[in-house]
Computed example of a mutant assay.
Amino acid sequence: MPKPYPREFREDVVAVARQRDPGVPLRQIADDFGISETCLQNWLRKADIESGARPGTTSAESAETRELKKRLRLLEQENEVLRRAAAYLAGEPEARWFPKMIYPLVRELAATGAPIRVPVAVACRVLKLHRQKYYAWLNQPVTEAEWEQAHRMNALIDAHRDDPEFGYRLLRDEAEDAGWTMCRRTAWSLAAQAGLVSATQRRRRGKGKKPGPPVFDDLVLRDFTADAPNRLWLTDITEHRTGEGKLYLCAVKDVFSNRIVGYSISDRMKARLAVNALEHAVARRGDVAGCIVHADRGSQFRSRKQARALHRHDLVGSMGRVGAAGDNAAMESFFALLQKNVLNRRIWTTRQELRIAIVTWIERTYHRRRRQDRLGGLTPIEYETIMNTNLALAA
Rank of each mutant, 00 (worst) to 15 (best):
Y5P: 00
E11C: 11
E11I: 12
V13I: 15
V13W: 03
V16K: 02
Q19D: 15
Q19S: 15
G23V: 06
I29T: 14
D31Q: 13
D32G: 05
F33S: 00
I35F: 06
C39L: 14
L44V: 03
A47W: 03
D48W: 01
S59V: 02
E61Y: 00
S62G: 04
A63K: 11
T65C: 06
E67D: 12
E67S: 14
L75I: 08
E76N: 08
E76F: 03
E80I: 07
A90M: 08
A90C: 09
G91F: 10
P93V: 09
I102K: 04
L109A: 07
L109C: 11
A114M: 09
P119F: 06
V120T: 15
C124S: 07
K128Y: 01
K128P: 00
Q132Y: 11
A136W: 01
N139W: 13
E144N: 05
A145P: 00
H151D: 09
N154G: 04
L156Y: 03
R169I: 11
R169W: 03
L170S: 05
L170P: 00
D173I: 06
D173N: 12
D173A: 08
G179Y: 12
G179V: 07
T181L: 12
C183Y: 04
R184C: 06
R185D: 13
A187S: 07
W188T: 04
A191L: 09
A192W: 07
A192Y: 00
V197C: 09
K207R: 15
F216V: 00
F216M: 13
L219P: 01
L219D: 04
D223F: 02
F224N: 10
F224K: 06
T225S: 15
P229L: 10
H240N: 05
R241W: 14
D254H: 08
D254L: 10
V255E: 08
V255F: 08
R259N: 02
R259P: 00
Y263N: 02
S264A: 15
S264R: 02
S266Q: 13
D267A: 12
R268S: 11
R268K: 13
A271I: 02
N276W: 01
L278V: 09
E279L: 13
R284A: 15
R285E: 10
D287R: 15
D296H: 04
D296S: 09
R297S: 03
G298T: 00
F301I: 05
S303G: 10
R304H: 14
R304D: 10
D314N: 14
L315S: 07
V322Q: 09
V322L: 10
A325N: 07
F334Y: 14
Q339E: 15
K340N: 13
V342E: 02
V342L: 02
R345M: 13
R346S: 08
R351Y: 08
L354M: 15
I356P: 00
T360N: 01
H367R: 11
R369V: 03
R369G: 04
Q372T: 01
D373G: 14
L375V: 05
T379W: 03
Y383M: 03
T389L: 07
T389R: 10
L393C: 04
A395V: 04
